[in-house]
Design a binder for these strands. Sequence first.
DNA 1: CTGAAAGCGCTAACAG
DNA 2: CTGTTAGCGCTTTCAG
Lengths: 341, 341
Amino acid sequence: MNSKKNVTIYDLADELNLSTSTISRALKDHPSIAEKTRRKVKKLATSYGFVPNSMAASLRNKKTKIIGVIAPQINRPFHSSLISGIEHIAKASGYNVLISQSHEQFEIEKGNIQAMIASHVEGLVISISVETKDIDHITKLIEKGIPVIFVDRVPEGLEADMVVIDNYKAAFEATEHLILQGSKRIAYMGLSDIWLYQERLRGYKDALKKYDLTIAEELIETNCLDAEITAELTRKCLDTKSPPDGIFATSDTIGVSVIQAAKAKGVKIPDQLNVIGFNNDPISRIIEPNLSTISQPEYDMGVVAAQHLFNKISEKNGIAQSSKIQLKTELLARGSSLRNS
Amino acid sequence: MNSKKNVTIYDLADELNLSTSTISRALKDHPSIAEKTRRKVKKLATSYGFVPNSMAASLRNKKTKIIGVIAPQINRPFHSSLISGIEHIAKASGYNVLISQSHEQFEIEKGNIQAMIASHVEGLVISISVETKDIDHITKLIEKGIPVIFVDRVPEGLEADMVVIDNYKAAFEATEHLILQGSKRIAYMGLSDIWLYQERLRGYKDALKKYDLTIAEELIETNCLDAEITAELTRKCLDTKSPPDGIFATSDTIGVSVIQAAKAKGVKIPDQLNVIGFNNDPISRIIEPNLSTISQPEYDMGVVAAQHLFNKISEKNGIAQSSKIQLKTELLARGSSLRNS
DNA sequence: CTGAAAGCGCTAACAG
DNA sequence: CTGTTAGCGCTTTCAG
C-alpha cells in the first residue's frame, strides 16, 4: 500500500553529504547558507517530493500552523460565511483551520475546546452557544496564553478580544426606520436569551422612546424558536385589539415567517404592516414583498477576526490588551417596509 | 503569560516514582497495569490538569486524529450541511476536522490538498472544484495510502470510494414529473460542466425520449452562471415562437430565478409553466409558488462519507476495494409544478 | 558557511 | 506487572 516511505531530511542529507542542520536551514532560507547549497538542497527536495513532517516540527517549535473555530452550527448562512472568511485569511497566512460546532450546547462546546487544545491549535475564534453563560473554560485558555477572539456571539461583560457589530445601534435604526415609514405601534419578535439579542431589544425600546411611542410588553415576543411558533405568535399578536402596524424581527428567518403568517391572514404588507428583519439572508430577497433587513458583513467579520487572531499569535510579547472591533451594518430598505408615499 | 508550563508524563512519573512507560500505559488503560496504579496515575493526572501532547504522540504513531475536508465553497447550504454531517461523525469518533475551500479553482484545490497532507490528516473527504479534470494530485494521495472519499462532486470515470446520489435518475424523475403534470415542451436550465450535471442532462433527455417528446437544443441552456444570466436566458427562452411549458432547473437558485423572471413577464406558474429545481434549498420554500425540487440528503451524505472514511482508516489491510454508495433523493412536488387538475 | 549533538513528549519492543 | 531504551523527524544552540 504505502509504496514509497516518506523522505526525511536525513535522506536528503545522506544523498548530498551534508548534515541535517544544513538541509533544515537551506529549506527555510536561513541567511547563513551558501546560495549554491541552498539551490542544490531545494532541487533534490522537490525531486524527491519531500514534505517536511509538520508533527516533528510542531513538537520542537510548539507551532502547529492550525487555528480552531468553534461555531454553534456551521450550516447556517451567517456562520458558514463567517467561517469562509476565516478560512480565507488562514490559508493566505499558511494556516489550516479546524472546525467544530457546539450545536448550541454548553457541554459540547467545552468538549470541543478540549479537543482543540489537544490538537494544539495556536489560537481560536469562538462564537458561543446560547447555553454558554459561564465562560471559565474559555478564560482558562486565555490565561494559558492561547489567543482567543470572540465573534458575533460574545459573552456578556468580559474584557476580551472580539469582533462584533453594534447590535444596539442596528436595532435602533431598524426600529426608527419603521417609525419613519409611518409605523406607530411596533412589535418585537425574536429571542432575548443571549446578550446580542438583549442589545437588539434595548435598541428597539430606545427607538420607541425617542419618538414617544409606547413600549407595549404584549408586543414583545422573545420566544420565536421556530417557524411554527413564530407564525402562531404573529397571529396572536395581530389578533389583539390594537394590533401592531410594524414588526422588528431579530432575524430574517423570523421576519419571513411573520410575513407569511400575516399575508395568510390577509394583512397587506407594507400597507398595513411594515416588517424588517436582520441578517440579509438569501431568503429575504425571495419573499414577497422582499424583506427589509440589516445586513451584517459576516464574511468580513471572519476575515477581521482571523487577522486579529494572527496579530495576537505573532505578538508573543502580548500585553494582553483586549480590543473590541466593531464592524458596520447596513440597513437595506426593501418592499416589506417601504410604504408608497 | 504562560503561567504554568505544560505537565508531561515525566512530571507524573517523577511524582509517583514510576517510569514514563507505566504512566503512558496507565493513562490508556493498558491491561497489564495494576488497577491500583492506574487509578493513582489517573488521579494525579487530572489533578495536575495533564493534557497529553498530541504532537509527540503523532510523531510516534503517525496518527493525528484529524481528517480533512475539501469543498468548493463552504458557505452554500448544500456544502455547509454536508460538512456539518462530517463534523458530527468525526467528533463522535474522537477526530477533529480540518476544512478548506477550493473556491472552484483547481490550483487552490491542489494547494489545499498539499496543506492537508502537510498537516498529516489521516483521511480526506473531497468534493472537487468545477475546474478539476485532471485528478493526478488525488490519485497520488490514494496510492500513498491516504484514504480518500469523494462526495457529491466526483471525478468522472474513476474507480474510487464515493458517496453520491443518482443524478441521472433524479433528473429523469424530475422531468417525468413535469410531463405527468402536463408539460409537453420542457427546457433544461443549468450547467453542464461537471459530470454530475452531465448526468442530470442525460436523465432529462431520456425522460423526454421515454414520452416521445422532442429534445429541442434551443431549450437546453447550460450556462446559467448567475441570477442575472439565468433571468436573461429565461426571458429569451419564453420569447421564442414555441416557448416551453415546463422547466427543469439544475438547482433551486436557478429555479427561483426562472420563476421570478417568468412571473415578471406575466407567465402564470404553474398554469402556463411548470418548474422544478434541485437541492431543496431554504429559498425553495419561500418563493411563490413554492418551488418543487429534488431533495438530497446532504447532511446524511456527510455522515455516510465520514463513516466510510473511518472504515477505510481502520482497515489498514485495505485491499483497496473501492465502493460507491448511493443515497436516495426525494422528489418534493410543490406549487410550482402541481397543476390544479 | 557547515556540523555535532541534544532534545521536544510520547510509545513500544524487549527485558525483567 | 513495571522499567530500560531507543527512537519518531526536525530545530537549534554551540563549535568550529
